[in-house]
Amino acid sequence: MSDDGQREFAVSAAGLTKTFTLEWTRKRLLALDGLELRVRRGEVFGLLGPNGSGKSTTMKMLLGLIKPSAGTVSVFGAAAGSLAARRRLGFLPENPYFPGFLSGREVLNYYGKLVNLHGQRLRARVDELLELVSLTAAADRALKTYSKGMLQRIGLAQALLHDPDLLLLDEPTAGVDPVGSRQMRDLILALRARGKTVIFSSHLLEQVQEVADRVLILHRGKKVREGTLEELLSVRGQSQLTVSGLTPELQTRLSAWLRGEGAELLAAAPPQQKLEDYFIKAVGQ
């Protein structure tokens, strides 16, 4: 790929393959098979697939925690796993574990020093992020007393410490309640508005649909679909209208008129709000 091409993409993978050899049986397991992946800068990209489809393997290769058996992968043009690549990305692992003996503030201070923040700059950044993830009140409590949702939020805060250009979020809403899940979604959208690239994996398809610009579906280590949600989900040849004041008589007349024009009314039912929206309203958040 040309340098221009590299500059356009936050992540670029070609023929990415990973084979694991099982320890005792020496059996080989193909975890990822020739993945082609291009994620544009500023895009929110969803990585979907059932368990064992290769999502985590892809994430780990982007971080350089494991090396590809074949193919290449780069982050902003730098080899994945290199210091140059890691300087520009932030990572939230699935079910994040942090040193439980530290408090929320201490863990951010610890990781902050590892991304070369110090002194007043570090203190200000930690305070800002604790505020962002609504953990200021719990900042000085030990992490072992945090709920799953709070750990997820502190995980996100540590990923944002050095204001990275790319965020890798592995199952960011796993085990998080609907309110926390909504906060995560809003945060992803806010990051996109600031021009950040976000790659996230998820099982919760509805949430993916709400935030992702493009998605890639993996199954048994292979890419089975990729595209924008519009490309993948639009039902061709059909349109959806939302009408107010539609009485049964008016609906009958409308249906007859449409038939006369060569079209057909396929469904008419009151639109339903999503359960998540209803829940958020009910708990007053």
Partner: peptide
Amino acid sequence: KRTIYTLLSKPVR
């Protein structure tokens, strides 16, 4: 406990 994933996602050798 996979705390090393978070650590090595930073520019740490």
